[in-house]
Structure formats: structure tokens, C-alpha cells
């Protein structure tokens, strides 16, 4: 059924901390590994060991560089204050998911119990329209299976009684060495992810698309000092002072100084 549920009992999703992510791509690999062996068709690769490898991934990490929008760096206008943020991107399990309503077969659906957006691969004809309707590039058509692949929020881990309880969270969250990914229920105001969003705020990706994403992106924290100041000024201040030269070195230093003054004088 490709009509969206009016509301969902729970709103499971990820809170991704852009301040903490170090851009190691471990979540990308953990996701590929789990989802190749489990739910649905494997995530295939083409020409994997050749010169033009291409493959299906459900999670990808972009890296951006920018001038932060906080008053401190705005006022000093220092161009060296550029900041780098790693930006993991996977399905946001939107409340108004356009990928669901465009599906002609009913293969794409949003679960009313927990809000997870899934593809029933038995019913998917591989027309690709849902990938076109998604603004975030969260869906990729698998070239081998001819069906649409997307993040399942590891639906086969989070409810899996065969796994130890500590592993019952999405593979990307479980593997993240920086603790930048958090899994939980956004419909529960007391959940860890809801509290994180209350404390830190969150960035809505492409609000003009009116998709109402469930996943939250916790913004990078403002830096206490601009990057430029930290790197150049502090290092210079800590450098040991040059002792005044003695003897022959003092004469050489003086001679060189005169030469320098003379050279700059004549060039003027």
C-alpha cells in the first residue's frame, strides 16, 4: 500500500552527530556487510576488482568545507577559519516520504508501527521512480537484482532475539567508533535521541522539499576559538624564544642585519 500512514506508533530513526563524526566510513562498510548478507537481495558490486568499480550502498559519507556561521568567526573574517564536516547520508525515514507515494506497485511502504520505510523486493519492478522522488539520494537500484535497495534501519537486527541485546541496533550505529550515531524512538520524548535533539537542536535537510525527515542531524558545535587562531597564533606563542647570539655569531648576525637593511634600502 503506497499511501502513507496518518501517524506511526513509534518513529524509529537515527540521530547523527555532525560534530563527532570523524569521516572514517566504518558505518558505510558495516552497513554494506550486514545488508549484503541479510534482508533482501545482496548489495551487489560490478567490476569490483576492475578499473571502474560500481556498487550499491545504503549509506555514504560526504565531506564538506565551509566558514562556520557563528559570530566569533564572522567578526574576525579570517579565511583560515574554514571548518570541515563529515556528512553521513542514508534514508531519513521521512514522515511524508515522497518515495512511498510514487511507487506504482505498493512495494515501497512506511510501517505504521515504527515508521520504518521499506521495500518489498518481491513486488518491486525496478522502475526507479522512488529514487527520483527522493531528494536525498537514499535509494539505489541494484544492478544485479533489478530491485530498489535502501536503508532498512537494520530491521533484521533491531528486533532480532537471536542477537545479544547490545547488537540489537543498526549495524552503522553499532560499529561507529566515534559514537556519532544514535538509534532510538523520536516519538518518545524521553528517548536518548529525543533528548539529544532537545539539547543540541537539529538540522533539517532540504526543508523546502517538505518531507519531514525522522532522522536528525545534530549540528557541529560552535568552536570556542576560530580554527585559524588555534592553529597559527598558539603554536607561534609556544615556540621557544631565540637566545641572543654571542661572539662570532653576534658579529655575523649584525653584519647580515646591515646587509638586509642596505638591500631593502637600495631596492627602495
Amino acid at each position: 500500500m503506497t499511501q502513507l500512514p496518518a501517524s506511526t506508533e513509534r518513529a524509529l530513526g537515527l540521530a547523527i552527530d555532525l560534530d563527532t563524526c570523524v569521516g572514517c566510513h566504518a558505518c558505510v562498510i558495516a552497513c554494506k556487510e550486514w545488508n549484503t548478507a541479510n534482508y533482501g537481495a545482496p548489495l551487489s558490486d560490478q567490476d569490483a576488482y576492475g578499473s571502474n568499480p560500481v556498487g550499491t550502498f545504503l549509506n555514504r559519507v560526504h565531506t564538506f568545507e565551509y566558514l562556520p556561521d557563528d559570530p566569533q568567526t564572522l567578526s574576525n573574517g579570517d579565511q583560515s577559519a574554514f571548518q570541515v564536516t563529515h556528512f553521513p547520508k542514508s534514508c531519513l525515514h521521512c514522515q511524508d516520504a515522497p518515495c512511498v507515494t510514487v511507487c506504482p506497485t505498493g512495494a515501497s511502504y512506511k510501517r505504521s508501527e515504527d515508521g520504518i520505510v521499506l521495500v518489498n523486493e518481491e513486488a518491486c519492478i525496478g522502475c526507479g521512480l522512488c529514487a527520483w522522488a527522493c531528494p536525498y539520494g537514499a535509494r539505489e537500484l541494484d544492478a544485479e537484482a533489478g530491485v530498489m535497495k535502501k536503508c532498512t534501519l537494520c530491521v533484521d537486527r533491531i528486533y532480532n532475539d537471536n542477537l545479544p541485546e547490545i547488537d540489537r541496533e543498526p549495524a552503522c550505529v553499532r560499529t561507529c567508533p566515534a559514537g556519532a550515531r544514535h538509534f532510538g524512538d523520536f516519538a518518545d520524548p524521553e528517548s536518548k535521541v529525543s533528548q539529544l535533539v532537545r539539547e543540541r537542536g537539529s538540522i533539517t535537510l532540504m526543508p523546502e522539499m517538505e518531507t519531514r525527515p525522522v532522522n536528525a542531524y545534530l549540528p557541529p558545535r560552535p568552536k570556542t576559538q576560530a580554527c585559524g587562531e588555534t592553529s597559527s597564533n598558539q603554536v607561534a606563542a609556544k615556540a621557544p624564544e631565540q637566545p641572543n647570539p654571542q661572539g662570532f655569531l653576534a658579529w655575523l648576525d649584525g653584519a647580515l642585519a646591515k646587509l638586509e637593511a642596505g638591500a631593502s634600502g637600495s631596492s627602495k
Binding site: 555532525l18 569521516g23 560526504h62 565531506t63 564538506f64 568545507e65 565551509y66 566558514l67 562556520p68 556561521d69 564572522l74 574554514f82 571548518q83 570541515v84 564536516t85 556528512f87 538540522i203 533539517t204 535537510l205 542531524y217 549540528p219 557541529p220
Partner: peptide, 13 residues
């Protein structure tokens, strides 16, 4: 992305 001052943002990788 919601990142940065408008106009200063670029893809690094």
C-alpha cells in the same frame, strides 16, 4: 546540509 555561511560551502570529498 544546513552547514556554514551561504556561499562559503563546498564539497571537499
Amino acid at each position: 546540509t544546513g552547514l556554514g555561511r551561504t556561499g562559503s560551502l563546498r564539497l571537499l570529498e
